[in-house]
């Protein structure tokens, strides 16, 4: 969320704005973070029109579901659909935001909250790839290897992420920080290779840029935890 440009090594900034003819744009301009403002994990509630989950890492598997601000978000979601079943996708995502992944218990709790059958909820949850049925690392790195990125070397980018994190696809790295997986088309074909890290896209990623991206993620994580520690003390 840096306001200033934070150039990365390897000649690749990691977002689309720094290629082509729009070099004057900052990362915030491209990502729209200034416009969007603060996000729920930092203390504000989502807007009137919806409540959408954030894929941010930091979920706790034992955290209570739908309490406090999360209850408000659940209620907001429910108010936007003509029936409770309609709320299933956003509510599953909310549960995943809170707990990091969707365990059988979480699915059962979501089913109870919406008055649905647990087996039905399981059927829906397993249909969609963004619901994690097992825990993932703090940073979920999804490397698009579909055709447009593949033509431009996505396989090497995937290998670079796997090598740099010392993992196999889908594994959690030893420090719990990273899970690297192959992703289907991320809808950023013009900026290959597209990589999604949690809720953020990195574009034009080359294998050389991978260490710098991981370095940046580590720095941000360290900054978040020290901020949390300050708040806690």
């Amino acid at each position: 969320m840096a306001e200033e440009r934070t150039p990365l090594q390897g000649g690749n900034p990691g977002w689309a704005g720094e290629t082509g003819e729009y070099g004057h744009l900052t990362e915030a301009d491209v990502r729209g973070t200034t416009y969007v403002g603060k996000r729920p994990p930092e203390g504000t509630s989502p807007g009137a029109s919806c409540s959408y989950p954030y894929q941010v890492g930091g979920g706790r598997p034992d955290a209570p579901l739908f309490e406090g601000p999360y209850r408000e978000r659940l209620d907001k979601i429910l108010s936007r659909y003509p029936n409770r079943q309609g709320a299933l996708l956003p509510v599953l995502a909310l549960a995943q935001e809170i707990r990091g992944h969707l365990s059988p218990e979480s699915m059962a709790e979501v089913a109870a909250a919406l008055g649905l059958a647990p087996a039905y909820v399981r059927g829906v949850a397993t249909f969609y790839t963004m619901y994690h049925k097992r825990p993932v690392g703090e940073h979920l790195v999804q490397v698009c290897t579909n055709v447009a990125c593949n033509l431009c070397g996505a396989d090497e980018v995937l290998r670079a992420f796997l090598a740099a994190t010392g993992t196999e696809p889908g594994q959690i790295s030893a420090d719990g920080q990273y899970t690297v997986i192959e992703a289907e088309c991320l809808g950023a074909c013009g900026f290959p290779t597209a990589v999604q890290v949690n809720d953020r896209y990195f574009e034009n990623v080359s294998p050389e840029a991978v260490p710098a991206i991981l370095e940046r993620l580590a720095q941000e994580a360290a900054a978040r935890s020290s901020a949390a520690a300050r708040q806690g003390s």
Binding site: Y35, V36, A48, S49, C50, Y128, L186, D199
Partner: peptide, 24 residues
């Protein structure tokens, strides 16, 4: 699509603005 968090946040913000301005 769920992967579009960044566009989603932008569109959500726009919807909020539209509600506040009586457009939606």
């Amino acid at each position: 699509r769920g992967e579009f968090f960044e566009p989603a946040q932008i569109v959500a913000r726009a919807i909020d603005e539209a509600y506040a301005a009586g457009i939606a």
